[in-house]
């Protein structure tokens, strides 16, 4: 199992780096999907099969498809790739990379401090996830449902169209 974890983790890190460094936005998005899938594999290995399935269905399967859909509609050609190349100069990413490096060293130090790594993985079945979601965490579920509802109503309001009148003859009769 350890080997599977290290493979998935390596793929995840590699693909995430590729997401940042690709100039072609579609390729970057594809690497992002790979990254999400490898995270799903890690979830599955460490006893959260339900989370793994949701990660693939919602993140990799629905949200990324929508993002790709919009990128497709924007019709970004080689020109954007050239622009991206101009924007991403070493001066731009040097400082953030340095800050991230400090965080990484800190993280490595903290992991090294924790001498006894967590063993004994207990898989959490989908039923237990449901029990705890609709038991102790019911308030959070309801709140997020409200948030989503507000989002849907807002999207409907923005996307609503007035009734189209196809011919001027109907204009006087309409409304």
């Amino acid at each position: 199992m350890n080997i599977a974890f290290y493979i998935a983790a390596a793929i995840s890190i590699f693909s995430t780096v590729m997401v940042i460094t690709r100039f072609n936005i579609m390729h970057a998005l594809l690497y992002l999907i790979v990254s999400l899938l490898s995270v799903a594999v890690i979830f599955y290995l460490y006893g959260a099969p339900f989370m793994a399935a949701l990660e693939v269905i919602i993140y990799a399967g629905a949200i990324m498809v929508l993002i790709i859909f919009f990128v497709m509609m924007l019709n970004l050609g080689p020109e954007t790739t050239r622009n991206e190349k101009q924007w991403l100069k070493p001066g731009m990413w040097m400082l953030p990379a340095l800050l991230c490096l400090i965080l990484l060293i800190e993280l490595a130090y903290l992991i090294a401090q924790n001498k006894a790594p967590a063993t004994g993985i207990t898989p959490v079945a989908p039923k237990e996830v449901g029990r705890s979601l609709f038991g102790p965490y019911i308030l959070a579920v309801e709140l997020s449902a409200m948030l989503l509802m507000a989002g849907i109503v807002g999207a409907y309001h923005l996307g609503r169209q007035k009734k189209k009148i196809l011919h001027r003859f109907f204009e006087s009769n309409a409304s």
Partner: peptide, 21 residues
Amino acid sequence: LNIGLLFFLAMSSMGVYSIVL
């Protein structure tokens, strides 16, 4: 798999990429 049905849904949502890409 104990998440068999979800796995099916996940894979069918992966299938969208073939058309889109």
